[in-house]
């Protein structure tokens, strides 16, 4: 009797979980194993492993060249985007949290860019705001101060293209992270502030530094991780904003796209995917360690 119940529960378990597990095997685990195998083989224009080449694909990807350049590009990009996103989205959350009148309006205004895709935002940035000719909004505004037209997206020196690349991502993602910080702020008990006033602290920087920031640590760690991982996977705005003919700034994913989809070299594309996956997993673990992700709050 008990045995029969256990067996019927096993069947029911697989009725619920089976479809997901089957899909996960076919579309997550099989691709990764397949690609892992391909990364040690020559696989030009074919997805069947043919000639074993050992680590050649990895060496090919990692020796000086576009893929390594793209890793450098990403590092520069992350160095800008991660601290800016954390500081600005936290600032916006504190600001919105402080407002009493029209708070919902401001929250929505900052949040609504999340509805736009990277493609739409890139389109606005490339064709209107950072258009290199005199009708681009940035050039119109700078023109008021007597600044000459800047070709934002094609000038290599100085690298003006970072301005549109960084601002477009900030515009799209700040509202999202602001919501996370707002949720964090709402969880801080009011008594903590009241107790500090009794102890003689004044509202402002002091309480922000000693109460708000420590209380938001979990949220901050999460935001740093999420923005970093998202930056590693940057593709859409680089693909749509930057000229495709010249290589000014390409991200690792763009290089994988070129290797696998344009040149049909699935061996090298797979090796690059493995390298990138490993890097992201390492960064996640390391970051968690450094910032004390595992610790209990």
């Amino acid at each position: 009797m008990r045995r029969r119940k256990a067996r019927s529960e096993t069947l029911t378990f697989w009725l619920f979980v089976g479809p997901f597990v089957a899909g996960m095997l076919v579309f997550v685990y099989v691709p990764i194993l397949w690609s892992f195998t391909l990364s040690f083989f020559e696989a030009q224009s074919t997805v069947t492993p043919s000639v074993f080449v050992g680590l050649d694909n990895y060496v090919e990807m990692l020796k000086s060249g576009p893929f390594r350049d793209s890793l450098v590009t990403f590092t520069v990009f992350a160095a800008f985007i991660v601290p800016l996103t954390v500081a600005l989205s936290l600032g916006m959350a504190v600001l919105v949290h402080r407002l009493s009148f029209a708070r919902a309006f401001f929250r929505s205004a900052f949040f609504i860019p999340t509805a736009c895709s990277y493609v739409v935002a890139s389109l606005i940035w490339k064709m209107s705001i950072f258009n290199g000719v005199r009708f681009g909004l940035a050039n119109v505004v700078l023109g008021l101060f007597g600044v000459e037209n800047i070709s934002w997206l094609i000038t290599a020196d100085p690298p003006w293209y970072w301005v549109p690349l960084v601002t477009v991502r900030l515009w799209l993602q700040l509202g999202f992270y602001m919501i996370l910080f707002l949720a964090g702020l709402q969880r801080i008990p009011e008594e903590l502030y009241e107790a500090s006033y009794v102890d003689g602290a004044s509202p402002g920087w002091q309480t922000f530094r000693h109460i708000t920031l420590p209380q938001l640590r979990t949220t901050t760690v999460a935001v740093v991780l999420l923005t970093l991982i998202a930056a590693y996977q940057a593709f859409d705005e680089f693909y749509n904003l930057m000229p495709s003919a010249v290589n000014l700034a390409r991200t690792p994913l763009q290089e994988l796209y070129l290797a696998a989809l344009s040149q049909q070299d699935y061996g090298r594309g797979s090796a690059g995917a493995m390298i990138l996956t490993l890097l992201i997993m390492l960064a996640t673990l390391l970051q968690g360690r450094v910032l004390g992700f595992g610790r209990k709050d």
């Binding site: 979980v17 997901f20 597990v21 996960m24 076919v26 579309f27 997550v28 685990y29 099989v30 691709p31 990764i32 397949w34 690609s35 391909l38 997805v47 991982i229 590693y232 996977q233 593709f235 994913l253 994988l256 796209y257 696998a260 989809l261 699935y266 594309g269 797979s270 690059g272 995917a273 990138l276 996956t277 992201i280 997993m281 996640t284």
Partner: peptide, 26 residues
């Protein structure tokens, strides 16, 4: 089964578009 699901959280889906494309094209 649960650990197998958790394992996939470590792997960013955008990075595995090459592997997925290999399977989907097959």
């Amino acid at each position: 089964v649960f650990y197998a699901v958790l394992g996939t959280l470590m792997i960013p889906s955008a990075v595995t578009f090459v592997p997925s494309y290999v399977v989907v094209s097959s």
